[in-house]
Nucleic acid binder design. Structure first.
Lengths: 346, 346
DNA sequence: GCCAATACGGTAATCGGTTACAGGACCCTG
DNA sequence: CAGGGTCCTGTAACCGATTACCGTATTGGC
């Protein structure tokens, strides 16, 4: 076939193509970028060479010229199948549609590592970044913003200073919907297994939980609110503790699915039937929620959408105007499955 | 504080630093890259400016100069399933240790898209790529290799032409271990729910399954081998079909955990007890395997290790010598949990 | 006091694109 | 046929780093 790149392994450059087509690099560039002002025959000649030699434009070089890299950074504490992967998937999808790539970094929840990753992302390697569940303090985020590096916080862990763009889920509304559902079924002793205290997600979900109880005229009992860490074992432990109470709850609202699974397991161990003896509601709607038995009633978080929205917000930041205090909150919705039902009559 | 980048948002360049420190760019470069031949005072002066202005070197420009981008591409069909997430996590980790970034692409199992992604990765945007479960035909992969773009196939879907570096799991050995386990427990009517026929993983696991049976002197019965698609519903369907047989199996070895979960569900529906009435073994050791009840006996695949190994192989390709026909196979191991036991006496 | 060796540090080309600007060819009009 | 447009195309200066090569001090030896 041709000889430029088949044999010697060197990718053809625009200059190669220009020489072969007997034109200048400027013309080749015009053809590649579909700019007007090139005679049809010239265009065809160039296109032919481009195709014959499998030319693709060197992103790095283009980035240098344009001051854009075509990369979006994405830092996350962990890469896992559940929550994180869903958000990531949405972000990758949205980036692809905009002809951007996603540069991935896992921080392992180490603060120093995340900070240094951000430094590295800013190395002109990316045009901006999405920081999922940031480990940074508000101060650090503020400083980052002062440096004019475009970034968006996805699902902030702690509450953020104003002026930092963030995308999060509607924790309060979701928690309220979950609790309302249990109340409507007739439950009155409803427990809550929360996430780590202090996190935005935790506090707002507790608020939603309490708001629902208050609206229904149910007095909250502190003994029914236990703190977990969003991992399954903590849900299991909380479940056991709750079932050991003199007056155990008839329903549990867990702040995420993982902990709900743990609670389910605790109930199963006691030989309790779900939902007859205990109703369980989760939060997230992880893949597992439908696979587990009984299938979990849960608040569906629009995780992929969260990723997508983060990218679209970020692109707006990158492309131009700055926004002050831009916040997006995405609504979830309750998905009722098999793990909730009316309390057993006593 | 300083004035270069705080106010106007432009990142300082080496030229800025050089001017501020009263030296040339060459000297700044020498300092940055820790090269010898710079007087201590000069070095200090430069370092001071570097720090004062938060200089970080522009990766894109450095990439252009050096012909290296510091990016490794990673294409995968999906991000969600935990199989993928685990491998990705390993790869990101390994890349980080080598000061590389991972550029992520999800193909959604669309062949055209994957091919075009590879084109894009080769845009000088990455130094090489890892292709997980490639959609490409062997021909296409061969052509890719002819272009001298370094890449490694992780967990090949179809069997690969020689000369293409690949990292895969020890399917045969894993399947044999799983089947041996069931045989040792005393099972003789053992069913297998396979993956899609033609896939390397499927065929090799079937081979391992058959090898174990043969070694134990058990005649294989074709009616006990059903084809699934690695998704949970297909395992459920297969489970129902198997239990409908005149002489149902006492044990099922599913080619992955998802299908094993489906089989578990089918057994539960029939009111059968696992493992007393039916033993079930999976393959993968997904997160869910320990959460589900009874906890699933399964073959643990070293998924994160698969990602790590892929990166390390890729780096060797990128850094230099070519290897012909480099193949790595990673061993898994059987994890015995609660879903397997001796067959009920008849 | 002179010369060579050595240590530093600067100049400029380069990587592969983009693009402002200049300039040539051609056609049309008066 | 001169002058003015229009249309196409080329030249060359960037983008921000790396680095081969060359020039200049400084120093030490004799």
């Amino acid at each position: 076939m041709s000889s430029i790149e088949e044999g010697n392994g060197r990718r053809p450059t625009m200059r190669d193509i220009a020489r072969l087509a007997g034109v200048s690099v400027a013309t080749v560039s015009r053809v590649i970028n579909n700019r007007a002002g090139v005679a049809p025959e010239t265009r065809d000649a160039v296109l032919e060479q481009l195709r014959a030699h499998h030319f693709t434009t060197n992103r790095g070089a283009r980035g240098l010229s344009l001051g854009r890299t075509g990369f979006v950074g994405f830092t996350m504490p962990f890469i896992r199948a559940d929550y994180f992967a869903s958000i990531l998937a949405g972000a990758v999808e949205a980036a692809y549609e905009r002809d951007m790539r996603v540069a991935l970094c896992a921080t392992h929840s180490e603060h120093d590592r995340e900070v240094s990753l951000l430094e590295q992302l800013m190395d002109g390697a990316t045009d901006g970044a999405i920081i999922l569940l940031p480990e940074e303090t508000s101060d650090e985020l503020d400083r980052l913003r002062a440096r004019r590096y475009p970034f968006v916080v996805a699902d902030p862990r702690l509450s953020l200073p104003p002026g930092i763009p963030a995308v999060s889920a509607a924790h309060r509304a979701g928690a309220k919907a979950a609790t309302d559902h249990l109340l409507e079924l007739g439950h009155r002793r409803i427990a809550h297994v929360s996430g780590p205290r202090g996190w935005v997600a935790t506090e707002e979900r507790i608020e939603g939980f309490n708001a629902a109880l208050a609206a229904a005229g149910v007095l909250p009992s502190p003994e029914l609110v236990l703190e977990g860490d969003f991992e399954s074992p903590s849900g299991y432990a909380a479940g056991r503790a709750l079932l050991d109470l003199r007056a155990p709850p008839t329903a549990v609202f867990a702040s995420n699915d993982n902990m709900a699974f743990g609670a389910l397991q605790a109930a199963r161990e006691r030989g309790l039937s779900v939902p007859d003896d205990l109703s369980v509601v989760g939060f997230d709607d992880a893949d597992l929620a439908t696979i587990v038995s009984p299938a979990l009633t849960t608040v569906r978080q629009p995780l992929a959408e969260l990723g997508r929205t983060s990218v679209s917000l970020l692109m707006r930041l990158i492309e131009g105007r700055r926004f002050e205090g831009l916040r997006v909150e995405l609504a979830g919705r309750l998905v009722v499955r098999e793990s909730t039902g009316p309390p057993r009559l006593r």
